[in-house]
Design a protein around this nucleic acid. Structure first.
Lengths: 147, 147
DNA sequence: TTTAATCCCTATTAAAAGAGTAGGATTATG
DNA sequence: CATAATCCTACTCTTTTAATAGGGATTAAA
C-alpha cells in the first residue's frame, strides 16, 4: 500500500502538470487537492531534491516540473517517496539488498517470484507518465461535462 | 514491501509443503527457518483461520496444508497476512474501497494505472503456487550438491 | 525600501503499525 | 495423569507515519 505521502505527491505532481505555463504554489495545490499545507511543503522538498520539480522562491515563486510531463513516470514519483516498488529488497532493482537470512540470493524461489511480480508491475508504472494520466483525466472531464 | 510476518508465513508454508506426509510442528518450523517460535504460533493461527492450513492439537499435533501445494498461490498467502496486493484500496479487487476524497472512482487516472499495475503483479502471484516454488527450490538444491 | 508572499529548514508531537513476548487454557496421545 | 502440542488474549517495545509549529531566507512588486 502507498503511504498518504505518496498519494499526496502524485496528486500534487498531477496538479502541477496541469498548468505547465505557470508556477504552482503550495497554497493553491493544497487547497485544490485537499492536502494539509504544511505537510505538502515537506513533501515538495523531497520531490525537488529528487530532481522531479524545480522551485522558485519569493513573491511569484512556486513549483514547476523539472522535465516535460511526458518524461516523468509514476514509478519515479512513488520510488522517491515510498522507496522500492518490489515486495522484498532482494527483488528490487533500484534498492537491491540481499536478505539477511537467505544465504543464496540467486537460487531462491521466493526471490524469483517476487522479482517477476515486481518487473510486471514496474513496467506499467515506468511506462505511464504524468502526461498520460493528465490526458486521461481531461478526457474524463469532457465526458462529465457532456453528461 | 512485505511485512516480516508475511515473509515468515511464506517460509513456513514452504516448509510445511516440503513434507506433505506428516504434520509439521511450530517448534521444528521455527528452528529450521529461524523464526521466533511464539511469533510463528500467532501467524499460523491466521493461516489456519484463512483456510490455508489445518491444525491438529495434542501430542502428535501440528500443521498440514489444507489443500495440495499446487492449489495454494503466493497471492493467497500474502493477502491473508498483509492484506491487499494493490497500491491503493481503490485499485484492489479483493479489498476494494473507494478513496475518501476521490468522488468519481471509475474516472480516475491514478486508480486506473494502479489497477493495471496490480493486475500484472497479481497474475504472477496468483499463478505461482507452493508446488512451483518447491520444485524450483529442489532443483536449486540439486545444483548445489553437484557443485 | 518596505512589504508581503513565497519556499525552506529543523524540531516536535500524536497516533498507528510492526515485531515480538508472556501466561495460561485447551486438547490429544501414551 | 503427564506430556507436548495448538490456541487465545493481552501486553510491551520500537519504528514509522501523519501532521504541526516556528521561524529563517529569498524575491517580486508596491
Amino acid at each position: 500500500m502507498l503511504s498518504q505521502r505518496a498519494r499526496y505527491a502524485v496528486k500534487a505532481m498531477l496538479n502541477i502538470a496541469r498548468t505547465p505555463e505557470s508556477a504552482s504554489q503550495v497554497r493553491s495545490i493544497s487547497d485544490e487537492e485537499g492536502i494539509p499545507r504544511r505537510f505538502l511543503e515537506v513533501i515538495m522538498v523531497d520531490l525537488r531534491r529528487a530532481g522531479l520539480v524545480e522551485s522558485a522562491r519569493g513573491k511569484t515563486g512556486g513549483y514547476r516540473l523539472a522535465r516535460p510531463a511526458s518524461l516523468i513516470s509514476f514509478a519515479e514519483i512513488l520510488r522517491t517517496i515510498d522507496g522500492p516498488l518490489a515486495l522484498l529488497p532482494c527483488a528490487s532493482r533500484n534498492f537491491y539488498a540481499r536478505c539477511a537470512d537467505c544465504p543464496d540470493t540467486v537460487h531462491c524461489a521466493l526471490s524469483l517470484v517476487l522479482a517477476e511480480a515486481r518487473d510486471r508491475m514496474a513496467s506499467v508504472l515506468e511506462g505511464t507518465t504524468l502526461a498520460d494520466a493528465d490526458a486521461l483525466d481531461r478526457r474524463f472531464q469532457l465526458l462529465r461535462e457532456v453528461a
